[in-house]
Nucleic acid binder design. Structure first.
Lengths: 144, 144
DNA sequence: TGATTATATTCAATTATAATCATATAATAG
DNA sequence: CTATTATATGATTATAATTGAATATAATCA
């Protein structure tokens, strides 16, 4: 039997469609916006973007299976970052995304929260111990 | 009453998410691949890509509402082309898309069909009169 | 070992998207 | 005006994507 897959796009040049699909979601763009600046673990992303753990994990997985980011496990934490291969093979797209993030106010607000978090010297352990305190700090209600 | 749209991306820099969503579909990429080379009306796209009229029309509409293409009516035909504003404001993305299309075999096959069609001197009127003949020609079964 | 914790995954509900068929609209031709 | 035709749009169905809550897994800690 011959199966003709008339409508498929072939296998060349990875799965461009999957990449665009992965980029076509607000939450994933917000995550990517952070990862462009620095490697982060799930609990940090979750906190800075104020999203549920399972949602953050799922969106990270989608970005990963489309080849945009990679992950690395360090003891109990999983750190995510933009995949170097993706950057090399899709440099125009990557530059476009980077440029676009600086022109969006929501994404810039997210980066401010990221910077607040990073400057605070809070660690993943502190997130566990008093996440409420960390969130308050990120909102700007508490000085550290 | 104050409505806080906590999760929206703001209105800056058009709707990037919508653009990525529009690009995250095989049929729309195939259409865009053609329009990058030249302005075409719906019946031509429909014929070259061998898709139904309503499907072509819907995908064109999605590309249009996301700001990637524009249309212009000429008598009974509607011609679509890539929006110059889109190209100017998203040049890196546009270059990326163009490059990617030449690396994909399905999309190159589509372009061969487009060229066959254009070289045939078939017109939209002929599509109406004998679409079956035009399709045969595009498949390569008939010489003209 | 047992308890805790970071992350991933499953389930169920909801919502969005895509495709097809039929019909509407607007332009043209006679 | 009527018939035809190019395109758009409804309505429907099928499929896929998104989410929160709960649970599973794997690592760490005591």
């Amino acid at each position: 039997m011959i199966i003709i897959e008339y409508n498929h796009m072939g296998v060349d040049k990875l799965n461009l469609i999957e990449i665009f699909k992965a980029l076509g979601d607000k939450n994933r763009i917000r995550i990517l916006n952070l990862l462009i600046r620095q490697e982060l673990c799930v609990c940090e992303i979750e906190t800075v973007l104020n999203m549920t753990q399972s949602n953050a994990s799922r969106h990270l997985n989608k970005l990963k299976t489309s080849g945009i980011i990679t992950s690395e496990k360090e003891s109990q934490w999983v750190y995510y970052k933009v995949d170097n291969k993706f950057i090399e093979e899709n440099s125009l797209l990557y530059e476009f995304i980077k440029n676009m993030t600086v022109e969006n106010t929501q994404l810039q607000r997210d980066l401010e929260r990221l910077n607040r978090y990073k400057n605070s010297n809070f660690t993943c352990e502190q997130l566990r111990e008093d996440k409420r305190e960390v969130l308050k700090y990120l909102r700007g209600n508490v000085s550290k």
